[in-house]
């Protein structure tokens, strides 16, 4: 029982960051209809930015984290502005190829700048774990979960409580009508891509110190984010949140009780199963945002 609970706690921490990744991608995918392969690179970018500022430049860890998130937003906005804005209205394959090209460029830039050896990031949190009964969790992981939950909450508020969020929801429903109603669709697209990218960078900045920053860390992150989006339904933030936690739990229990080798296969099997049984996602009443 203790072992099972420990697995659940492990999954919970991971699930928070998975949810961030998923929410970021589901916004981009849902609103802009872009199969975005740069998402995982933004995740890696977040981790490397924390490494750069906290480890190399000696900034406070928390400030480095904030810089990484803001940096992710700016980089996302730049990608949208330079590569995707000129292609508005192009079919889904075309924009996808451009994001694959951007992904190749970004990953190799990381490899060139940081080298192939993974980088460790230390944090101000004590190494001694918090122990509750038979369950242990490190303070860093508690921090990761709390920040992830705060960011998830913040994104909810943004979508439901702000004018920008309203514009995003309207664009999701029907972009042409929204444009006719006088909404600045181009601005909304840039904002969406920027927020989505920022969330991916935040997830990377949180997980970087827990694991290591490596140039290839983005590959699996992109694929997992796709799994979460499919699981939760296109453009569905609640779905992506639940999907993120669910994927983490399935992976962790699968690795613990079935075979750790198939840990990463779980997400893909879920994609295939969900798409074959219920292509709109498990939590979708209909396609919607919010």
């Amino acid at each position: 029982m203790a072992e099972f609970l420990q697995h659940l706690v492990n999954a919970l921490v991971l699930g928070g960051t998975y949810a961030l990744l998923g929410i970021g991608l589901t916004l981009i995918f849902g609103i802009m209809r872009i199969v975005n392969f740069t998402h995982g690179e933004l995740f890696a970018f977040g981790a490397y930015f924390v490494y750069l500022f906290a480890m190399l430049l000696g900034f406070n860890f928390f400030i480095a984290f904030a810089i990484a998130v803001v940096g992710g937003c700016l980089l996302g906005a730049a990608i949208e502005f330079i590569l995707l804005r000129p292609l508005r209205g192009a079919d889904i394959e075309t924009t996808m190829l451009v994001t694959i090209g951007a992904w190749i460029i970004m990953q190799n830039t990381e490899l060139l700048v940081w080298g192939g050896v993974a980088k460790a990031i230390t944090t101000p949190f004590p190494e001694t774990p918090l122990v509750i009964g038979a369950i242990s969790v490190s303070p860093l992981r508690v921090f990761v979960l709390v920040i992830a939950l705060v960011l998830i909450g913040g994104t909810y508020a943004l979508i439901h409580r702000t004018k920008l969020g309203m514009g995003m929801r309207a664009t999701f429903q029907d972009s042409e009508t929204a444009e006719l109603m006088g909404l600045n669709i181009r601005g909304i697209y840039t904002a969406t891509f920027s927020i989505g990218s920022g969330l991916a960078a935040a997830a990377g900045a949180l997980l970087g110190p827990v694991f290591l920053a490596a140039p290839t860390m983005g590959d699996l992150a992109s694929l997992k984010a796709f799994a979460i989006v499919i699981l939760g339904g296109l453009g569905n933030i609640t779905g992506a949140t639940i999907g993120g936690f669910l994927l983490a739990i399935i992976e962790e229990l699968g690795a613990g009780y079935i075979s750790s080798g198939y840990r990463d296969a779980m997400g893909f099997l879920i994609i295939i199963a969900v798409l074959l049984v219920k292509p709109t996602g498990l939590f979708a009443r209909a396609e919607r945002i919010g």
Partner: peptide, 20 residues
């Protein structure tokens, strides 16, 4: 005897099992 993929970063599942 637990195994990990050479690129894996999260060994919590194996370690939790080994702890027991």
């Amino acid at each position: 005897v637990e195994r990990m993929d050479q690129g894996a970063q999260d060994m919590n599942a194996q370690l939790t099992k080994l702890k027991g």
